[in-house]
């Protein structure tokens, strides 16, 4: 982009500058190397023929992958995690969107305070949130289990959905909703038939994000689970003894599946946005 303007200072092409550029590229690459080294390590050791995850390399095996279906504790934890995440995403999408509409249509100090307070659980350190929720649920007489875990996740999932949808609502052109109202549509018909389709990509993106948040959550969940463990809690309980590469195998599979899902979802979302051009990309500002 900077190449378009007229006069470039000469010092940009000096040997020192070229060296500097090389160093910057190397540094930039190093960041990604740092980021992906652990992922590579996990994947590689999923195929290592030893229970000890250390070098030297003990030979190639697929036995860790074959062991997964036979591990009943692991499978039940995986299934439980899915049921938690699916329920949390479904409820959070509904409630979060509803709350976003409510906050969008209401201005003033109370609304602003409510929005601010709602986000508190997202930014509070995990174990503080976990302990405060454990105390609350105990005071309400709820036994730790499925309901408490889902409810606990909703506390940070709902504001994420609300914030994402709300920021999209605020960038919408209000004239479409106004036109619908002028043509006689009631407020709910307008919300559902006119406004909702315009924010569906935001809801989809929020659903994806909250799914990963819920599926992977350990710190808060630790305070809320009963006897049935979620997958991350199961992994956590295994790490005490140094878990087997079976966990690497599971994580490798989940990682691959979620990457495919991300690519598909990104495609869907971008395709969805382009033809209709719902959003004004500049946000209206100059």
């Amino acid at each position: 982009m900077s190449e378009t303007s007229v006069v470039r200072p000469v010092h940009r092409r000096s040997p020192a500058a070229i060296l500097g550029r090389g160093a910057s590229w190397a540094g930039f690459g190093a960041v990604y190397l740092f980021l992906y080294a652990p992922l590579v390590a996990i994947t590689v050791f999923a195929f290592n023929d030893s229970t000890i995850q250390a070098l030297p390399w003990a030979g190639f095996t697929t036995r860790w992958f074959e062991a997964i279906p036979k591990d009943r504790l692991l499978i039940s934890a995986l299934v439980f995690s899915f049921t938690v995440a699916i329920a949390a995403v479904a409820i959070a999408s509904l409630l979060g969107t509803w709350f976003a509409f409510a906050l969008h249509e209401r201005t003033g100090r109370v609304a602003r305070a409510a929005r601010g307070l709602m986000v508190v659980p997202v930014v509070v350190p995990g174990m503080v949130l976990g302990l405060s929720l454990a105390i609350t649920f105990r005071s309400l007489g709820l036994t730790p289990g499925y309901a408490t875990v889902v409810l606990g996740h909703l506390v940070f999932d709902v504001p994420v959905v609300t914030l994402l949808v709300l920021s999209r609502l605020q960038r919408l052109d209000p004239s479409q909703a106004q036109a619908a109202m002028d043509l006689g549509a009631g407020p709910w018909r307008t919300r559902i038939l006119v406004v909702l389709p315009q924010v569906r990509t935001a809801i989809l993106a929020a659903a994806l994000l909250t799914f990963t948040l819920s599926f992977d959550e350990v710190i808060v969940t630790f305070f809320l689970v009963g006897a049935q463990q979620t997958l991350p809690i199961f992994i956590w309980s295994q790490t005490r003894f140094g878990f087997t590469p079976e966990i690497n195998a599971v994580v490798t599979i989940i990682g691959l599946v979620s990457m495919v899902l991300i690519v598909v979802a990104t495609r869907v979302i971008t395709r969805d946005i382009e033809p209709d051009n719902y959003d004004r990309p500049d946000g209206g500002g100059a």
Partner: peptide
């Protein structure tokens, strides 16, 4: 990387 289990990413540093 954020889509890969947090715990396992941390554990990988042990490896």
């Amino acid at each position: 990387p954020l889509w890969i289990s947090y715990l396992v990413r941390v554990y990988a540093w042990k490896i």
